[in-house]
Design a protein around this nucleic acid. Sequence first.
DNA 1: GTCTATATCAAGATAGAC
DNA 2: GTCTATCTTGATATAGAC
Lengths: 207, 207
Amino acid sequence: MARLSFREQMLRVREDAIVDSVNRLLAEKGFDLMTVDEVAADVGIAKASLYKHFASKEDLAAAAMIRALDRALAQLERLRASQPQPSPLELLKAVARWSMQVQLAGEMPSLPSQNSSLRTSLLHNAAYLHRLTQVSDQLGEWILAAQSDGSLDTALPPELILFTLYARACDPVLTVLKAGGQHSDEQIVEWLLRTCFQGLMTTPAKS
Amino acid sequence: MARLSFREQMLRVREDAIVDSVNRLLAEKGFDLMTVDEVAADVGIAKASLYKHFASKEDLAAAAMIRALDRALAQLERLRASQPQPSPLELLKAVARWSMQVQLAGEMPSLPSQNSSLRTSLLHNAAYLHRLTQVSDQLGEWILAAQSDGSLDTALPPELILFTLYARACDPVLTVLKAGGQHSDEQIVEWLLRTCFQGLMTTPAKS
DNA sequence: GTCTATATCAAGATAGAC
DNA sequence: GTCTATCTTGATATAGAC
């Protein structure tokens, strides 16, 4: 990686501030309800200036999604390197806990589950898809390992488990409970981890 | 209920057709991406005619949501009257199964979890709120009963269980798995019921 | 109540000066 | 690269004739 000139560093910092705002607004209101005017106002620059950095609203959102995936990848790497090495199930729980914490902090840019211009644009974004594949590959590896060692149910297809983990990372139950204001973030996360991995039913005592 | 004139019956039928279209489009694309033009085209009447029946797009969606809740209430009533009376846990599972089936059939009008004009308008809609309360009351009753008889985890607050059931009724995992086209609807529903109530982990054998 | 045609407005994107 | 001012589009909603 070549050294950056002062000018390039300024550019980098400015764009980072933009992506910060987009990330937060995306987490708050979602892609459809977020307006480019809001982003510009939030960053404190004119809308036209935004468009000098990013060609479209979709590109803006894609940048935020890519950075979120980069952070996820960094987190996966930290977990993979942790000593003593946790079991596959513990690794997956740790990932789920981390993503829930990110969401509670209002920093999880959730893409709309329904079809939107964002989804189609992301499906043509190589940088995004590459990172998404990397995350899925690592999780898939742990899922298979957890099924092999008997901790995750082998009756469930691995892809179902993968999709479920993705879905729980932006579970609306988190938001609703936090909005209720009755419980601490930590308590909410532990409950949702419990329902994700053990379900709603009473856990039978292990024999 | 007074007898309806022929004219009034025609009106009723027409409005029912409109709500049908709205319901389907709402399930397909969600509120924000559904346009009134689409609804009009789908019903086969002019947009201005739509606005003679419903004052706004929000009212249109509210009508669909209200009808969906009415169907849920009817389903709850059927379950409540079923003989022999199932256990509370079985009743809750039956509700979850039913709502998942409705969603897979493309007939579940999901409201956006994020704040939108629809959410705020629904919060001021007495007819909607009344039905939502009725549904929640019935489910809440069963949840408490299931916790009392030891089948649902008493460590979880009843409201968390209620929210979770609502969330699973429009779980994106359902849509994604169905889109994959690898599995039958029945199989998908059974898997998701399993993950909802027992979680992802291997179920320990009961002693 | 239904239609065609139109008003209105919000939001994505751009022109052109500096 | 940043700004102000403007273009353009698409979508909600309405006017007014029949």
